[in-house]
């Protein structure tokens, strides 16, 4: 990368300096993307970068209901909350704002209905009932988007730990395959069609 990498950073810097002319404010995301590599990969239990402790606990609990742990690992085992923590930087501040506001309302409902300040300490049925109520909100759709993304994005973004998301789908992120790829093409080749 060396030489061109510097060039790209310099370019992005120049874009940023002229951002006043633009209605869309350029974030640091492109720069982050440029030097991402595997810096996001973290072990469970490590400190969060963008989320506070309450947000981390609550988002982890919500993620666990959107893609629950069943006979196969769910969002919790995939470390989806670490993915969410990683991607909610300046470039996704609008989404983060939606989540913060929605979380406040969700916690208020938990308090009101089940007399608990925390969503994460409710039982699964209680949690599901509150989420069902929020289904049509921007909060829920943003949460769902990020949970699914965290389950199926490359593990280097912090979620999809040990590729449990890929395993769930029956997907295997290999670099090469040989024909036949599935049942029908194997059958086709066998019959000499």
């Amino acid at each position: 990368m060396g030489k061109d990498f510097i060039t790209r950073r310099a370019f992005l810097g120049s874009v940023k300096s002229s951002v006043g002319k633009s209605i869309i404010v350029l974030s640091s995301s492109a720069i982050v993307a440029a030097c991402r590599d595997s810096k996001f990969a973290r072990a469970a239990g490590e400190a969060f970068v963008n989320l506070n402790e309450t947000e981390a606990s609550e988002f982890d609990a919500i993620a666990g209901r959107i893609l629950p742990s069943t006979t196969s690992p769910g969002a919790k085992e995939a470390g989806v909350v670490y993915f969410i923590d990683n991607v909610l930087d300046d470039s996704r501040s609008a989404e983060f704002d939606v989540l913060k506001k929605g979380l406040q309302e969700l916690r208020a409902s938990a308090s009101q209905k089940f007399n608990s300040p925390n969503f994460f300490s409710l039982n699964e049925a209680q949690q599901d009932s509150l989420l069902r109520q929020a289904e049509s909100t921007a909060f829920f759709s943003t949460m769902r988007y990020l949970v699914i993304a965290g389950m199926f994005a490359l593990p280097e973004y912090g979620g999809n730990k040990d590729s449990v998301g890929y395993d769930l789908m029956g997907f295997d992120d290999r670099h090469s395959w040989l024909s036949p790829y599935g049942y029908y093409d194997a059958d086709y080749l066998e019959k000499g069609e």
């Binding site: 869309i24 492109a30 470039s91």
Partner: peptide, 19 residues
């Protein structure tokens, strides 16, 4: 094979995110 980077952060494409 970076679906999040290419499809959701527009790493390969010219987008509003890049000004």
């Amino acid at each position: 094979h970076d679906e999040w980077g290419y499809e959701h952060n527009y790493d390969l494409t010219w987008s509003a995110r890049k000004g």
